[in-house]
Design a protein around this nucleic acid. Structure first.
Lengths: 196, 196
DNA sequence: ACCCCATATGCACATTGACGCATATGCGTC
DNA sequence: GACGCATATGCGTCAATGTGCATATGGGGT
């Protein structure tokens, strides 16, 4: 139950509604962990059932009533116990890598455009991280333990994006250098397979 | 269906049984994409039902009969079509990052040991990548398109592991520098919470 | 003799995740 | 006035993934 723990972790900062959590998972921690609002609401129900969070209803007019969730002491303890367990190193699971693994059996052109798109994507994200870092940590140092965690988080994100962006660039260069030596004819629904 | 495509990608190299694929997914492509044998057998059934692969039974004595799977032309075409679609940038989804996000609400000591374990883990993997790279690509260059894909793959893996290892080291240093400024008392089932 | 390991396949169940759809309303815009 | 958008919650379904268990047997260690 990692998403649940991610939600508990978010609620240590301040009480939030499901809607706010969904927005949080669209930025900040969401840079690392994606989840849409349905998933979050479902997880919130589970956490509430387990007594880890408490919902306080705030009546609104015009909009559905809010449910502001607060961590209970049990929730805090659960989070601390979870955090005390060793983490599991994740695998990369990027389907671009599968394409690279089968590079000689697929078409190069789509891969090139894909790599260019990905290069732009990762550069954008890198810039975004750097911008937040410069804004939140202009000195490059953290003042407390809370800040330290977020500083480290942002640094990791920035470096990761930079590394992947560099990789895309190099892959594009290597493909250019290799062009013409390919073994696969352009994709045309396999109707004129052995042509080139 | 990314695991299915990963299997198709593996079968472009040579026909394999589910068992061999499971081993492949325990090394090589498995560095990036984890899957146990049950998952692979299940996916193989699906791919066979769709006509993307063909199983040839090899009778054995003492062991269950082998099913050697070969890519069909339809499977090849499916893989090429899949590979021609843009890839989806994955998120990092490392639960160590959730722990860092809630660093001020959890216990530091377990995080330190976790970081040390992770440091060792990622260093090991980095060395492994470097070893394979030196063995398969002593010149640091690829001879063909197939080799190029695998060279790039290994390079990305190596860099990724190095980056994460460096990150763990820095995080440990930062935690040491920060020690004593913490706000959380040691975890003891929350029975003497506000003590320190 | 007993147990674990490697070989080789597979089912069943639970969790997680992705995606569409539903409800309810005020506010801006075309 | 119709339409989309932001707010705010939630159901239902299906695909993907994770975990445990089952079957069958030859070979090596204790």
């Amino acid at each position: 139950m990692a998403l649940g723990d991610a939600i508990l972790a978010c609620l240590t900062e301040r009480p939030m509604t499901g809607y706010e959590l969904a927005k949080t998972f669209d930025s900040s921690i969401g840079f690392f962990w994606k989840a849409d609002h349905q998933q979050i609401y479902r997880e919130l129900s589970k956490l509430r059932d387990r007594g880890y969070i408490q919902g306080r209803e705030v009546v609104q007019s015009g909009k559905p009533n809010k449910l502001i969730y607060t961590l209970t002491p049990e929730g805090r303890t659960a989070l601390r116990h979870w955090a005390a367990r060793p983490s599991t190193p994740p695998s990369i699971k990027d389907d671009l890598l599968i394409r690279l693994h089968a590079l000689d059996s697929i078409d190069i052109e789509p891969i090139r455009t894909d790599l260019m798109d990905r290069l732009e994507h990762h550069r954008d994200r890198h810039e975004n991280y750097e911008r937040i870092l410069k804004k939140r940590f202009p000195e490059g140092t953290a003042s407390g333990v809370l800040d330290l965690g977020n500083l480290l988080l942002l640094r990791l994100g920035a470096r990761h994006e930079q590394m992947v962006a560099d990789f895309c660039e190099e892959a594009l260069d290597a493909l250019s250098a290799m062009s013409g030596k390919g073994t696969v004819v352009p994709l045309d629904d396999g109707k004129r397979e052995g042509k080139g």
